[in-house]
Simulated assay, not measured.
Amino acid sequence: MKKLSILLIFGMLLLSLAACTHEVHESAVDNKSSKNKKAVQIHNESSKLMQESTQKSQVKKNEKKKEDGSNDQGDVKKVTHKNKKDSVTKGKQSNNSTNESASKPANTPQTNNSEVESKNASSSATSENLKQEESNKKEIEGQSVNATPQQKTVSKSSNESPQQATAPSQPVIAETKLAKQTNQILTVVASGIHAHITLWTKNGDIWGKALETNGFVGKYGIGHVHEGSMKTPYGAYSLGFAFGTSNPGTKLPFRLITPTSWWVEDSNDSKYNTWQEGDHFNKPSEHLADYPVQYEYAVVINYNTARTPWAGSGFFIHVSNGSYTAGCVSLPESQMVQLLRILEPNAYILNVTSESMIKGF
């Protein structure tokens, strides 16, 4: 009986010792499990902070790119690559932590959960970065498309010369049918015996003034003429040859006045309205040498080239004597010299009484 009691006591001691040992073991396991949980939690929080920091940095860069309008896709790719690399590194660290914890059965479920959470976080970060990259590309492409018309407009404006951008205004003479027949037109706009005389010349497609002066016309102005009317013929006429006491250097055919030079103005003469050399012609024919001032320099106006009797004859452009003419157009000597040096064959004269009449020719 005494032995039995001793055995019971000894057995109870063993059970008590075993229970204590089991409690110590469970306490150690619980401590290790708690430490592992804290380590995993710290790791997850650290990963989350790093991802948020990376995303904030990326957003700031994108905002800066949008303001500058720069196309920095290379930086987006680098950041994305870096995020992917960081995610892979973090995944490896999570795997190492999982492998260390896998040797302890009590921690296996928590380690697997940590690994899944880490992979999900990495996948989420990568997906967000890819979405951000797509958004950046669309914004950059949109900016490029929107900027293209402006760039084209600026390029076009910078290449255009002032003449191309604003075409020079043409004078009224350029709008006439006469302007299509010749490159030189002498306009004579008269009021009474006084006239405003302008030589228009065409350079390329542009008409401009080559000479401008004041002069005189017939005693009775510009109008419909006949022999002895003392009017300058109205309308447009081609110019013929030049003549005078000396040649100032004209491009027109030139005839030198001699003591026997005449312009026949007798309507009964078969030589009516022509230059002739001879000793005498009936009135009102002109002996050209008798007018050394007026006919020092002169040009024939091709009026009545059909030489119809009594229709009018002997109309010229010549040097002015300071007063009206018998039907010719006169201008100062210096301007007459300049006119003869500019005129070329196929030039025209246009005699009107107002600027508005020019359009009709």
Rank of each mutant, 00 (worst) to 15 (best):
F10S: 15
F10E: 15
L13G: 13
L14P: 08
H22Y: 09
S27N: 13
D30T: 05
S34T: 04
K35Q: 13
K35V: 07
N36C: 02
A39F: 05
H43Y: 10
N44R: 12
K60N: 15
K65M: 14
T80D: 01
K84Q: 03
K84R: 04
S87N: 14
V88C: 04
S94I: 02
S103W: 02
T108A: 13
K119G: 03
T126Y: 03
E128I: 14
E133S: 15
E134L: 14
K137Y: 10
A147V: 03
T148L: 15
P149M: 07
S158D: 12
E160T: 14
P171R: 00
V172G: 03
N183L: 04
V189Q: 05
S191Y: 15
H196N: 11
I197E: 15
T198D: 09
D205E: 14
E212L: 04
E212I: 11
T213N: 02
G223E: 09
G228C: 08
Y234P: 00
T245S: 10
S246C: 02
G249T: 01
L256Y: 08
T260M: 05
W262P: 05
E265H: 02
S267N: 06
W275P: 07
G278W: 01
F281D: 14
F281S: 14
E296L: 13
Y297S: 12
N304V: 08
T305C: 03
R307L: 06
T308K: 12
P309H: 06
S320F: 01
N321K: 12
T325Y: 05
Q338M: 10
R341N: 01
I342A: 01
I342W: 06
P345N: 13
N346E: 09
